[in-house]
């Protein structure tokens, strides 16, 4: 399961809603305890793919920065998010082929600049992306 509070979730939504005709992407960080991942930070990065309407790629420099930030702030780099404009939040064949071990992959379906669905996926073994539950927690003052 992956969890995040409403504020972090809003950061995620805000990062992708402007992207109505291209895929937006980024990293997220937090802590892992047993099989529970708590996301505490989101880091949008540039989509460096040639065809941004249907693909995303993250440059090596941005990846290095994400690893360095995780190390500096004592967080885990937990995974990658990207948007699917006008498509469901399910992994494509390309998503499955490119998936890395360990990482959670959050996919946000964006329809007319509104996030309509958010789902998370993680490799089970080496080959299959399986869905994992997402929990959005309330902030209690």
């Amino acid at each position: 399961m992956v969890s995040m509070n409403q504020s972090v979730f809003l950061n995620l939504v805000t990062a992708v809603e402007p992207c109505d005709d291209v895929e937006c992407c980024g990293f997220f960080f937090g802590q892992e305890n047993a099989n529970h991942r708590m996301i505490t930070k989101v880091m949008p990065v540039n989509n460096s793919a040639k065809d941004k309407r249907a693909q995303f790629e993250i440059a090596s420099g941005d990846y290095l920065n994400a690893e360095r930030l995780a190390s500096k702030e004592n967080m885990q780099l937990l995974g990658v998010y990207h948007s699917h404009p006008n498509h469901p939040a399910v992994p494509s064949e390309y998503d499955k082929k490119a998936a890395q071990p360990y990482f959670s992959y959050i996919i946000l379906s964006v329809m007319k600049k509104k996030v309509e669905d958010v789902r998370s996926w993680r490799l089970d073994g080496d080959s299959e992306l399986k869905e994992e539950e997402i929990e959005i927690t309330k902030i209690i003052n």
Binding site: F56, S92, Y94
Partner: peptide
Amino acid sequence: DDIRSLNHEQTEVRENSTISIIPAIAGGMC
């Protein structure tokens, strides 16, 4: 520096070098 801009796998490594292994992060609708 990306070793593709240096001498690829033959790039020299010194005692104080830091080597980063970076997986390609990609995906998308197709």
